[in-house]
């Protein structure tokens, strides 16, 4: 039996450390994918294929390779949240109007500068829709990874499930739900803050 506060802290650490790693790697990977078109084709078709694999399968498949515990659980959260971020960021960054890219190259912007000043601001919406989807997935996966011993809110849920104690199940599920809604709200605010304003 773990205390409620510990459970929430563990849940947040688990879900959002995995989420942050995949946000950084996903957006970085998308920038690389914009540079090399072969990589982009592989990423987009590969990620749509892998995205169809259920999360619980990935939770289980990580056990033979990494064992059980907190670290494998972070790896699972990372793997399952990476695909939506990577896919949306790649599509967003590579679907900028080529006329705008030509214009900025004509003004003497380097590749990095076109990413920074042209492609990125125009891709804020798709990137954030990927991040918001990922944050929901991260919460859900963080609960499921209790089966490989990650602790957190999932531990409360599992205890409720094993004893078939419905208030116990709800005590684990409702905080997870509130965290997901809150995270989505915060990401929405951040999106409005980052979105370019055209005067």
């Amino acid at each position: 039996m773990i205390s409620f506060t510990t459970a929430i802290i563990q849940h947040l650490t688990l879900a959002y450390s995995g989420f942050l790693i995949s946000a950084v790697i996903g957006i970085g990977g998308a920038v690389v994918a914009v540079r090399w078109s072969l990589m982009r084709a592989i990423l987009i078709s590969g990620s749509s294929l892998l995205q169809s694999i259920p999360a619980f399968t990935i939770v289980a498949l990580v056990v033979p390779f990494l064992g059980i515990g907190f670290t494998p659980a972070v790896v699972v959260v990372f793997v399952t949240t990476l695909l939506p971020v990577l896919r949306n960021a790649t599509i967003g960054l590579s679907s900028t109007d080529p006329v705008l890219i030509d214009a900025s190259v004509g003004m003497g912007l380097s590749f990095c500068q076109t990413i920074r000043f042209v492609r990125f601001p125009l891709a804020i919406r798709p990137i954030f829709s990927g991040l918001r989807l990922s944050s929901i997935v991260a919460n859900s996966v963080a609960v499921v990874t209790v089966f490989i011993g990650s602790g957190g809110l999932g531990a409360i849920v599992l205890e409720g499930l094993v004893r078939f104690h419905i208030p116990g199940i709800l005590a684990g599920v409702i905080p997870a739900m509130i965290i997901a809604l809150l995270a989505d709200f915060l990401l929405g605010r951040l999106e409005e803050f980052c979105a370019p304003r055209f005067h």
Binding site: I136, V137, N139, S140, V143, V144, V157, L161, F164, I166, I169, L170, G172, V173, I174, A176, M177, A180, L181, D184
Partner: peptide
């Protein structure tokens, strides 16, 4: 509904529909 994590939705239905 879409903003609720899928596992949470699944478990929230238990009191209503059983397992």
């Amino acid at each position: 509904i879409e903003m609720i994590p899928d596992i949470a939705l699944l478990l929230l239905l238990i009191p209503i529909t059983g397992i």
